[in-house]
Amino acid sequence: MTESEGGLEKVAEVLNWRDSKLFSPSERLALEYAERITYTDQQVDDAFFAELRKHFTEAQVVELTAAIAMENFRSKFNPTLGVEAQGFCMVPQRNKG
């Protein structure tokens, strides 16, 4: 399996990242970080930051935080102004069952 194939498989599994064997411990931590930043009922406490520092440098944490914050910004900004997806990234539909 090539890296790009693995990447497409990961995109298909991203909604199940906690249970999927496709994600490394660092990737799981980054996804949890994204959730903690995104959801207002969750926090990023000192213990979680300590875990992040085991996997990522300070610069990587800053870059990851900026990327997550930008996507959160877009998720509020774009729908409000009617900005449509441009079709660059096809995300699998979530099962509603």
Score class of each variant (00 low, 15 high):
S4R: 12
K96L: 14
E32F: 08
T38P: 08
K54G: 07
S24D: 02
D46T: 10
A66F: 04
E27G: 05
E84T: 08
F48E: 06
R53V: 01
A85E: 14
M90K: 14
F56P: 01
T65Q: 00
S24N: 07
Y39P: 03
A67S: 13
R18Y: 05
N72E: 02
L15E: 05
Q60S: 10
E35G: 12
V61P: 00
M1N: 12
Y33F: 15
Q42I: 00
Y39S: 01
A67E: 04
D45Y: 06
F73C: 04
F48G: 01
A85L: 09
A69S: 14
H55Y: 05
F49V: 15
L22I: 07
E58V: 02
K54M: 10
V11L: 15
Q86R: 13
H55T: 02
F88C: 07
V14W: 00
N16E: 12
R36W: 10
V61E: 07
V91W: 12
E35T: 05
Y33I: 08
T38K: 00
R94M: 09
F49L: 15
R18C: 02
K96G: 07
A69E: 05
E3C: 03
P25C: 03
R94T: 13
G82A: 13
M90N: 15
Q42M: 12
E71C: 05
G87P: 07
N16P: 05
L81W: 11
N95R: 15
R94H: 06
K96Q: 11
A59F: 08
S4L: 14
F88Q: 11
W17D: 09
C89G: 10
G82I: 06
E51N: 10
L22Y: 04
M90D: 15
Q43F: 10
K10H: 09
I68A: 00
V11E: 14
F73W: 15
E27Y: 01
L29Y: 03
I68H: 03
L29A: 02
L29C: 04
Q42H: 06
